[in-house]
Write a protein that binds this DNA or RNA. Structure first.
Lengths: 155, 155
DNA sequence: ATTTGTCCTATCTGTTTTGTAGGATTATAG
DNA sequence: CTATAATCCTACAAAACAGATAGGACAAAT
């Protein structure tokens, strides 16, 4: 598993939508704004959002004043499905099924692959149990930690 | 982290050397043989072994009847160092230091990166604590399991 | 001195990643 | 109704990377 630029942009854009979702604000859910705020190339972002839409993670409103929003609440979207959709399987090589096959067929590389399966399972455990809402929460806590640590307070 | 063909070939070749190391046999530690047995392109394998040598994982004997052998016992070589050497950092993106930097600076992506750090730590935990000897052992067990399961016994 | 191995560097080819570009389509505002 | 502003769709392109391939220099045992 390798998180590509596409993958990172996806997560950032979805997090942007999570913010809009939580705050009931219909702001910042248009590509133009997300692109600027998150510093993601506009046309590239279009492609990414299209993929996210076909994957059922976001929905869109066409036309003037249109935009994107999450297709389900942020507690129901986990990072695993996002990354699988955009970057493919989580395993270090191939996918879980392939790896299990090699192990069960007892191929010469079965020992190696059994470690690879452990790795893929460890990755999936984390990513499949971390939702956009969790990430949003973490972001808040991290920025709060930082404010407290630096002695700065914004009003 | 993504295990490339190079990475997989590295592990397979090292495991081949592990076998030679354990059995005291000086067989199968020449590139030509490893290449054939493991079905790895010979010239490609040369490059890989060169990298492994410069990384201090194997040593070589030049000239006729030369070949490769592990530079230290298989219990002291873990998969983490092999993969880092050949495929780079274990983190899903960038490396652990970069990721920690983003989190500590409290950047907008800190929440995402804190999850990525968890992932990289989970990967490192496994790979840094699994040695070539462990993999060798697993391989033996897996092939034994398979023999028992299928009712076949080789003498 | 010949054979058989490692060592070193350069090159090549196809794929993937990371975008750009141009226009079609759709819905809202005025 | 029309202008505007958004998503939608497809094609292309440049650059980086992966996965080799090639050719020969060097070293050591026979």
């Amino acid at each position: 598993m390798k998180l590509s630029k596409r993958g990172e942009y996806s997560l950032r854009a979805l997090l942007s939508l999570t913010y809009a979702y939580s705050s009931n604000a219909f702001c910042s859910n248009q590509l133009r704004l997300i692109s600027e705020k998150e510093d993601i190339p506009y046309k590239f972002l279009e492609q990414i959002m299209s993929a996210l839409k076909h994957g059922g993670l976001v929905k869109s409103q066409k036309g003037k004043n249109g935009g994107y929003s999450l297709a389900k609440p942020p507690e129901k979207i986990n990072l695993g499905e996002v990354i699988r959709l955009i970057d493919g399987p989580l395993a270090p090589t191939g996918n879980a099924e392939e790896i299990r096959g090699v192990i069960q067929r007892g191929e010469r590389t079965a020992g190696i692959y059994s470690v690879l399966l452990d790795v893929r399972n460890a990755i999936a455990d984390i990513l499949d149990h971390t939702t956009l809402a969790d990430v949003y929460q973490r972001t808040l806590e991290l920025s709060r930690d930082r404010r407290e640590q630096s002695g700065m307070y914004y009003i």
